[in-house]
Simulated assay, not measured.
Amino acid sequence: MTTSHITNSHRESTGSHFLPGSAYAVLGLLSFGAELSGYELRQLALNSLRFFYWTPAQSQIYRELRRLSGLGYVTGREVRQDGRPDKVAYSITESGRTELTRWLEQAPVAPPAIRYDTALRLFFGHATTPDRLRALVAEHRAHLERMLTELHAVRAMLEGDPTLALPRIVADWGDHLYGNELAALDQVAAALTGLGPPSPSGRVTVPPGTVRPLPGQDQA
């Protein structure tokens, strides 16, 4: 196997500007020290970051690598492989480590965000039937149980390596979050069983007068 080097242009970021979180996710994965191809970075993200932050498409990984390469935060090395397509292995540069540390120490903490497709559908559930809403919650629970099982497998792989103490802490955090969400889903499912019979049209109805403008909204 032979190698050749790829040179990258370098441009410093200045002031209080920060890159998107996905860029720091890629920098962080490379900061563990291994040279990784774009494909390998995505596989690593799927086995770690997807449980709490990001499930990237392959195109997103390559877009971030191009951005980081242009800034001089990563460098790529072309690797020729016998009997397999050549690949580019990326590593973090010293300026990349400096930028990762700057983000860790100076970037403001974003407020927690929940973005669940099931919650959105449930919120507008008056446009469907109670049976469909209960099925949505059951499917959401099945996804969550599968994620929790997979997270337990990842957590087991992290055991025993003192250099992976922080990823283990995050995995434990995720374990607690998923467990609490399962309990919350039980409450949601119980509440849905208390819904009255559907209207003759088969739709969930909202009693008159219960939909009012939110604070700050103009009165019609």
Rank of each mutant, 00 (worst) to 15 (best):
T2V: 10
T2Y: 13
L19T: 01
G21P: 03
S22Q: 09
V26G: 02
G28K: 06
G28H: 09
L30G: 05
S31P: 02
S31K: 02
A34F: 02
A34S: 11
L36H: 04
L36G: 06
S37R: 07
G38I: 08
L41R: 05
A45C: 12
L46S: 10
W54F: 11
T55A: 15
P56R: 10
A57T: 03
Q58A: 15
I61F: 10
L68F: 10
L68V: 08
S69C: 00
G72M: 13
Y73F: 15
V74G: 07
V74E: 13
V74F: 12
V74W: 10
R77M: 11
R77V: 02
E78T: 06
R80N: 07
Q81H: 02
K87G: 05
T93P: 08
S95W: 14
S95C: 06
Q106E: 15
A107C: 12
P108E: 14
V109N: 08
I114H: 14
Y116N: 07
D117E: 11
T118K: 02
L122N: 04
G125P: 09
H126V: 06
H126C: 14
A127K: 00
T128E: 15
T129L: 14
T129R: 13
D131T: 00
L133M: 14
A138E: 00
E139G: 08
E139N: 07
H140Q: 14
H140C: 10
R141W: 01
A142C: 06
E145V: 00
R146W: 08
M147C: 07
L148E: 15
L148D: 15
H152R: 03
A153I: 04
R155Y: 13
A156Y: 05
E159N: 06
P162S: 14
R168C: 08
G174I: 07
H176F: 12
H176K: 11
L182V: 04
A184H: 05
A190D: 15
A191Q: 09
T193V: 07
L195W: 00
P198E: 15
P198S: 12
S199M: 10
S201T: 02
T205W: 09
V206Y: 06
V206R: 01
P207G: 06
P215N: 11
G216Q: 04
D218H: 10
D218A: 15
Q219N: 09
A220T: 00
